[in-house]
Each structure stands twice: as C-alpha cells, then as structure tokens.
Design a binder for these strands. Structure first.
Lengths: 409, 409
DNA sequence: AAAATAAGTCAAGACAATTGACTTAATAGG
DNA sequence: CCTATTAAGTCAATTGTCTTGACTTATTTT
C-alpha cells in the first residue's frame, strides 16, 4: 500500500558532492586565471593548502592539470604554478541548422581541433539523423587522428539547434525545424554515439561559447544577443546559463513588438525585423544557399538601400531590446553575436549607438554596455561543443547535489 | 613583496557546507510538503534514513521541527511525521516607501505576528532613519510580547524599498528616494538594531513573499510583476530570487516603451502608464494621502472614465510585458501583485485577457499563465520579513560555499 | 650568516554521511 | 489466531574529505 504522493524537495549532498565541487572550483580558477600555484588556489578558494594539494595531486594524476616551472616571487620558497592540460578532456559539438549541420571538436580549454559540415536535406529528422551521426563519427575520427588519447577523454556531445522546444509547429516550416524540435534528439544521439548528450538552443550555445572562450569569459552576469537566422538571447546569470522551466528561456525573437511607426496594435515577432531571415527576405537571398554568408558580407560592404532599410528596422528593435534586457537583468555587459559577418555586426552596433539610457549607465562600469562577440557561422557549433566541457567541469549547484532516483513515494 | 594580483575564483566547500545544505533541504521539504516522516524525507532528498534521522534529531533539539502523532500507513511500522515549528525562528521586515514606512514580524512559516506603520517625512534618510529605528524597536517589543522566545530566535532584518540602487538621482524626486537608494542603509540598520540586514527592491520583496506564502510557493520559475507606486518584477529563477550584477534586476518599470499609438520614437518608461503613480496622476490623487488605497478602491469600483483610460493604457503595456517576460524567462507562471486594491487587480487581469500568444502556450501547463498574487499595501513588508527567513533556511548555492576572507593575494 | 618569509608536506584528527544488521510495529493471508 | 511480510527507524562501525598544527624546504633581507 504505497500511496503515490509526490514529495517535492531538493536533493541533499554528501562528501562526494563536496569533493566534486572543489575539483570543479580548482579547474574553474585555473581556466580563469591561466595559472596559479597551490597556495594561490588555497587563498582564492578559501580551502586549506593541504586540501588544495590533495586535489591538485589528484587532478594531475587524472591528466587535467600540469605543473610549470617554479617561479621565485621574492622571499619564501618559490611557488609551482599549475595550469590546465588542454588535452585533459575533449568534447564534440553538433549544430543542427535549417539547411546545414556542423560538428566541432574542442579540448578542455576550448580550442577547436576539428570541424565538419554537411548539408541537411529538408526532410527533418527522418532523413537527417543518419547524416548527422555520420558527421559526428567522422569528426571523432578526425579528432582521434590529431589527439589519440581523445576517445578515452571525450566527456560528451553537445547539440544545438534553433528553439523553441516542445512547442506546436508553426506556420512556414520549410526545414521541418518543428519536427526536429519535437524529435527525441537526446536519446537518438546518445544511442547513436554512446556519449552523454546535452541540448541547447542556438542562442544558449552562442552564450556558452562566449563564456568559455569569448567576451563573457569570467563574466558572471551577461546577456548574449544571438542574431542568426532567427533571434535569441543566451542568459548567463550567476555564472550559469539559465534555461527556464522548459529550456526555452531567451527566445527573444518571439517577443511581439510593434514595428517602427506602427499605428495599430499589430504586434509581430521581433525577429521578423531583426534577423538574418528578415535580411534575406529583403535582399531576396536564398537562406539555403551555402554561400549566403559571403553574399551577405558582400552586400553589407556596399551601400545597398535595402540593407539600410533592414538596418534601420533592426536597429530600432535592437536598441529597445538591449535597453529592455539591461533593465530586466542588470547584467555586467550585453554581447551581440551571431552568424552574421563581422562587418555587418559592426555596422549594426555602430548604428545602435548611442544606446538608450538605462540603469546600465553606471559610473562604476568595468565593461562596455554593448560588445561584439563571435560573428561566425561556427559560433553555435563551438558553443555546442563547449557545453559538455562546462557541464563536466564548471562549478554549479546541481553538480553538488545527489542525483535522485525518484521523488515519488 | 606580495603582488596584489586579484585572483578570480569561486569558493570551495567542506563538510560544514554539506551539513548546512542538508539541514536547509529538510526545512525546505517540510515547508513545501507540510509534514513528512523521516523515511519520506530520506527518499525525497536522496539521503539515507540514518542521515535524515540525525539531522531531524538536531533540528528538533534546535526547536525548528517537531513530531506529530504517528500515523499507520498500512503494513510496516507507523511513521512519525515532522513539521516546522512556527516559533522556531522570527524575522522583522521593513518597508521604506515614499511617504510611509512599515514593519512586519513573521515567524518561520511566514505568519504575520506584528505590524507597525509610520509616516515618513519627505526629508530622506537624514530625518527618516530615526523614525525607522523607533518603528523597528516597537515591532520587536510587540513581537516579544506575543512570543517571548522571539528575541533569541530573530534571524535577521529584511529591508525593502523602491529601486534602482546606486543610480544617479532622477528628475522629480519629491520623496528623496534617490537619497535613500544611495544611503548606506544596511550598515545603518545593522548598527542600529544589531541584526543581520538584507536589502531588496519592492518587486523582489513582493516576489519573496509570493514564494514563501503566496502563489509562487513551491514554484521554481516564476515572474512576479509588482504594480505599486512604480512597476517592477521579482524574478524567481531556479527557486531563488535573481538580483543581477548590481541588485537592480527586474526594474521593468524603467523599460522604455512606445505608448499606444505613438507615431514617433518617443519611448518613455513603462511605469509612466502602468503604475499607481500614473493612476494617481490621471485621477488627481495625492500619493502621500494615507487613504490613497481606499480612494483608489472606491474609484475603481465605479465606472470612472479616467479609470478606463488608465486601464486601457496599462493593459496595453502589461499584455506586452507579460508576453515579453514569458518569452525571455520561460517561467512556470507569471504573478501580478502589488499595492493596488484586489478589485482593481482583477479588473486589470480580466482586461488583459486573452493574453498575447507566447511560448507559454503549452499543452503541459500545470499553472495558469497569469495569476493574481498579493494585492495589499503590506505585501512588500511581508516579503521584506520573509527575506531573512529565506536567507537563513532556504537551500541555495551560496549557503554551501565557504565564505572567503579576501580573494586578493 | 642569521632571521624572516612563504610554499608546500606530513600525520593525526574531526566531521558528516554511509553501510548493514537489527529492532519495532503494523497489515495480509492462510 | 498465528506467521510471514513490509516498512519505519536505530545502532555501531566505517568511509571519505577536509582541517589542524607542526614541520621541511627554499628563497630574500638584513
């Protein structure tokens, strides 16, 4: 007679959780500061010298950190700095976009070691999964060729694709994205690769990349506006990516806003005006064209009237979006990134200046209100690859807690 | 020769952190589920029966939990449920508003035990601090009269006032709020009361109240829109209040938006249309009038044309705000609360229906997209009082970490 | 050359969760 | 009615991890 009452509670923790956290804290500190001695680590983490020594020894045995030559810093015994071993861990990233899929292999410090790309037929998961699994396989082989130890040290596979997830299909779904969004991708990829798989949307992946190796490195409160085919935001809050209740946080392209000069209440999604998709529509470009990036770059370099029109509309929306996001999140900085050419990104950001006034106008700012981050079609794939590294090595609350088998009685 | 290089790192943890977390998890589980046996707690928290037994015993010794009569649940030894002892802890809340200051005393389960109110002269901290300290003193005495043990069990003082903090003074600052916002309130109150002091803005306090005893009880992802004299949002993310880099997250009233029908780019703060302040302006009411709440209630009950105009404008903004917040945060629910009469809140929410479409339109929803929370001038004070309870007893990442003396080398 | 300073190690100790056997108290079933 | 079964909860020993304080090593300052 077990009543199936659901008990809501958070998980407890134990010594393992403590140890796991402290190991992560060490790795995080080394990632952030480049190199540190045991004594410095002890001071920085509030742990004792002895504890740090034990953990560092263990990490060294595990091949995650290595010592450098001792340095004399004045009086006292010289200190031995430690740093991360790039080859200590590897991860694969997978980007599923509308017409293309990309893979990336990175190491512990976020260096890109291999890339792969393939066209994705417009048939959705039914036809695409095979292509994807083959591409991942190829990237793993490429990685093993460069770094033979990588197979043993692969910590996971990170997938990224446009969101939102778990929502009913939309209007014009040429590339079957809705089919992908509702497809059991994690399970399929886990079964097909034998790896631990994580899933993020485009913008979240871009933010993950910015946090590991980009403009948000070491920044605990940052908003990454991702301008790609659609528009999204990756939310870095308290040093972690925020996902929301259903993993759809940050889908700002779906905010309904009034177009500039609209007289009626005809709200339409933000990304109808501020996205590569809207630019393609204006320029009559085919988003499936593999040369799209180059085309856009070329047009943006010129002074096409249509580009100016697009910029006008996009800037109008993005200035408001930046002001709103600053007001809502009170971040240290806002980063504009995406799969658009750097030239166009610069144009955009320049046109957005001056920014609208907000609570971000503080005297004690150390970072600019708006920065340009990765502007590269590969940014999402890099972020996808960074996710397993972050999941495995970054200090986070969830990593301390015991994993619950079941909360039901 | 100590080079003052700043090392950035997170804190480590130790057994004390583990223990503290597990204690908090127990209390949280009991708060959430009312009463649980040791065996249920063990299952819910993924800890062992023995560990739970030890912790519960300790909490019982500390007077924080108590056992109830054993209940037979079929086969096996009857279980002994435990619940929180309301008198296990107390906290004082302080609200500093433009023309009035309020105090509240609550117990561990969030019941209000004492209240105090005083007018605040328009002179800012210079003249106000004394009034405030006296009011706190009076509330402490009132509390002690009701619960003699409270003085020993007072866990802290929570203060709440309109934000944003640390920003330069604004235009029409009749009540010297900017002076308050830049005043070292924490230090002054700590010195004046001998208690640990926390500070939140209005909206955050309202959200804290909703989370402890209101509509967000047990909800880990909720956005509380606080409509008071100004407009703000309290962000409950992953079960914790999010504060931003400078404690100003959620100040959505300062988002610049285009008024309905605006033809030019004349963006003005949202709260110019959606706030009690804007209603007062329309109705020609004096915000400093102590009877304001009653006046508004009376006017709202009638069918004043000016109220309809205000509703129109506010609804236009708030529908967009709800859609935007849903899209940005992907919360489980949005809660409208504030210092406005319940009747007006109902009018507002009814007029906001139907809500704009968003990613919150999911089949698997368990909570309404928009709910009404506390609509009471005391909500902020209650939330202020709830903050020390939350700080002391809720499981949170920061409670696990060691406190660092200094990160500088 | 001695004193001071700082990095890092050693070995014992403290603390908190875990383990597995045990006790207690109820119901189910023959 | 008696026995087997089930579940709650305890006991005592164990394990894992961090802490403590004394110690060693290596360098600079005086």
């Amino acid at each position: 007679m077990n009543d199936m009452r659901l008990i809501r509670a958070k998980s407890g923790t134990n010594q393992e959780g403590t140890s796991a956290h402290n190991r992560r804290v060490m790795i995080d500190a080394l990632r952030l500061n480049g190199q540190l001695s045991r004594a410095e680590l002890a001071r920085a983490t509030a742990l004792t010298k002895q504890t740090v020594s034990n953990i560092i020894e263990e990490l060294e045995r595990d091949g995650l950190v290595e010592s450098l030559e001792a340095v004399r810093n004045g009086r006292g015994q010289p200190s031995t700095p430690y740093r991360l071993v790039p080859e200590g861990a590897f991860a694969i990233g997978l980007q599923i976009d509308r017409h293309v899929t990309r893979t990336i292999a990175v190491d512990l410090v976020g260096r890109v070691l291999a890339r792969g790309e393939a066209n994705l037929p417009a048939g959705g998961p039914a036809t695409g999964v095979r292509t994807i699994l083959e591409l991942i396989e190829k990237t793993r082989r490429d990685l093993t060729a460069i770094a033979p130890q990588s197979e043993d040290r692969l910590v996971g596979l990170g997938a990224a694709m446009p969101g939102p997830f778990g929502i009913e299909a939309d209007d014009d779904d040429t590339w079957m994205m809705a089919a992908w969004q509702n497809f059991p991708l994690l399970e399929t990829l886990a079964a097909g690769t034998g790896l631990d798989v994580g899933l993020q949307n485009d913008a979240a992946a871009a933010a993950t990349a910015e946090r590991m190796v980009g403009a948000a490195h070491g920044v605990d409160h940052a908003i990454c506006i991702y301008l790609g085919y659609g528009l999204g935001a990756g939310l870095i809050l308290n040093g972690e990516l925020y996902r929301g209740a259903n993993g759809n946080a940050g889908e700002i392209g779906m905010i309904l806003s009034l177009p500039r000069g609209a007289s009626l209440d005809e709200r339409t999604p933000l990304e109808h005006r501020a996205s590569i998709a809207s630019l393609c529509r204006l320029l009559d470009l085919d988003p499936a064209d593999p040369e799209l990036y180059a085309h856009i770059d070329a047009v943006a370099a010129g002074s096409d009237e249509r580009v100016r029109r697009w910029l006008d509309a996009a800037v109008f929306e993005l200035r408001a979006a930046v002001q709103a996001l600053e007001t809502i999140f009170d971040p240290q900085t806002v980063i504009l990134c995406g799969g658009l050419p750097p030239g166009l990104a610069r144009l955009l950001v320049e046109a957005m200046m001056p920014l609208l006034p907000s609570i971000a106008d503080r005297r004690d700012r150390s970072l600019p209100r708006l920065q340009i981050g990765f502007t590269d079609p590969w940014a999402v794939a890099i972020g996808a690859a960074a996710e397993p590294i972050s999941r495995t090595f970054d200090p986070r609350f969830s990593a301390i807690l015991k994993t619950r088998v079941s909360a039901a009685l």
